[in-house]
Amino acid sequence: MEEINQTSVAEFILTGLIDNTELQFPLFLIFLTVYLVTVVGNLGMIILILISSQLHTPMYYLLSSLSFIDCCQSTVIIPKMLLSFVTETNVILYPECITQFYFFCAFAVSECHMLAAMAYDRYVAISNPLLYNVTMSYQVCSLMVAMVYSIGLISATTHTIFLLRVLFCKSDIINHYFCDLFPLLELSCSSTYINEVLALSFSAFNVIVPAITILSSYVFIIVSILHIQSTGGRVKAFSTCSSHIMAVAVFFGSIAFMYLQPSSVSSIDQGKVSSVFYTIVVPMLNPLIYSLRNKDVRVSLKKLLQKISFLRTKI
């Protein structure tokens, strides 16, 4: 019987986004800027919602949770990615790789369900405005947020437990810019059947269920808007959903672009480039979408800036 090398690797080498050394420094500056905008935008949104009393509503409570998820997801990936642009060999230890995958999976899954929770919030606000404060009470919102994070943690924990059972001995080079599930499984010299079944099952649940929730919510929202008599009322009702619609379109659109390509035209390198949009660009865009498209956020931000300016002149 042919012997199999059972020596497991202690560290991996991330190939990064591209191999062109001439583009390393420009890309470093670009992604550093993206990361700073992401952190400042999402933390700014959280702080603005926290200190502005007019934003103390269920909608913005859920939005602050989305901003927290986006900020954490970017922090899990981008700093290590930036390191790959300035080092010749981007080494990541096995425990660090597994940890990165765990938190990336947890926050990515949480974002899917958080967008679904926000869609349900908009449905209640437009379809049952008189009962909104009762239906979307602080207790209900807290329970929804807890469920969102719980699903993310359960998914990540399950994937990680079974990933720890996989033996990596084929190679130590991960053809990606972070430790994602399928690039890791490609390096396995043991069976990955269970991992693949889990990936399919959890992906179906964590994408299809939120997508159905969002689509169902907006079907009822559209029906409710059509029953509004005044044109101004319809426009106002739709405007409360426009920011969320854009965020959903950007997020799930990027997922569709990644995973719904025919295998004949897709490649690992194309997957790396397209995943940049899902993992890095989307967390940057969300606070910009909600600040530019949302009147309440713009008004609160303007008041806060005026207050800061007044305090400066007074000092």
Rank of each mutant, 00 (worst) to 15 (best):
N195E: 02
N195T: 01
E196P: 00
L198T: 00
L198N: 01
L198G: 02
A199N: 05
A199Y: 02
L200C: 02
S203H: 04
S203T: 12
S203C: 05
A204D: 01
A204H: 05
F205N: 02
N206M: 01
V207D: 07
V207P: 05
I208V: 10
I208Q: 11
A211L: 03
I212P: 04
T213V: 11
T213Q: 02
T213F: 15
T213Y: 04
L215R: 00
L215W: 10
L215E: 00
S216E: 09
S217N: 01
Y218M: 08
V219R: 03
V219P: 00
V219D: 02
I221S: 06
V223E: 15
V223Q: 10
V223S: 14
V223G: 02
S224Q: 13
I225R: 13
L226G: 04
H227E: 04
I228E: 10
S230E: 12
S230N: 12
S230T: 11
G233P: 10
G233V: 03
G233R: 14
V235L: 15
V235W: 12
K236S: 15
A237Y: 08
A237H: 07
F238C: 11
F238Q: 05
S239L: 08
C241F: 15
S242G: 06
S243G: 15
S243W: 06
I245A: 12
M246G: 09
A247E: 14
A247L: 11
A247C: 07
A249D: 07
F251V: 01
F252C: 00
G253V: 08
G253I: 11
G253Q: 13
I255C: 12
A256R: 00
A256E: 02
A256L: 07
A256C: 11
F257R: 01
F257I: 11
F257V: 02
F257S: 01
F257W: 03
M258N: 08
M258Y: 00
M258Q: 03
Y259L: 08
Y259V: 15
Y259K: 07
L260M: 03
L260P: 03
L260N: 05
P262G: 01
P262A: 02
S263P: 03
S263D: 13
S263I: 08
S264L: 01
S264A: 08
